[in-house]
Amino acid sequence: MANAAAKPAPVQAGRRSGRRARWAFWAFGLGTGLALGVALPTGLLLLVGLLPAAAAFASDSDPDKMTARPVLYLNLAGLMPALKALWLGEHDLRALASLLGDPGTLALAYGAAAFGFLLARSLPYAVLAVLEARAATTMKLLEARQDELRALWGDEVVAEANRLAARAARLTEAKAQETKQGGREAGRG
């Protein structure tokens, strides 16, 4: 009964994420269609210029796309100058070709995307380093407190602490057994 009750939740979550993906796919498709239909040069520029972002989205297995999003945003940022030049100048294919022919255009876009990728990859490690450093400091403080207690009370305090911990573990075990027992009995009832 409990297992049967547990099953629907991941199934529902899976259905939700599948629905979302289909919406995203159709939204992207619609958006692309509109962009190409209404503004072909812009669309083509976006198509070529956002290739790194597309690759990042395709390869990012994280459901929240933690790596792909920064790549997208910075890829877009790198493409902005080209988009501005296209929109403010001749918005035609010749202008597009001229832009795409300029190596700097794609270099900026692709470089920004690469920067976004690096950012997405490195920031978690930086955060981890901070968290680990804090944990290490806390650990040092705890150890220092224990050393202080040992200095004041001798090694007997360690033995007594172990005894207390063992007793607490036994109590926890006993409580867990009781809960399990209670659950089984409730199930039978």
Binding site: D62, D64, M66, R69, V71, Y73, L74, P124, L128
Partner: peptide, 22 residues
């Protein structure tokens, strides 16, 4: 747990930075 948290926070921070830059 710290590693998972670091991944989450780091990812969010990367998004925030990149959005800011955009």
């Amino acid at each position: 747990l710290r590693r998972a948290e670091a991944a989450r926070v780091g990812g969010l921070a990367a998004q925030a930075v990149s959005l800011t830059l955009l």
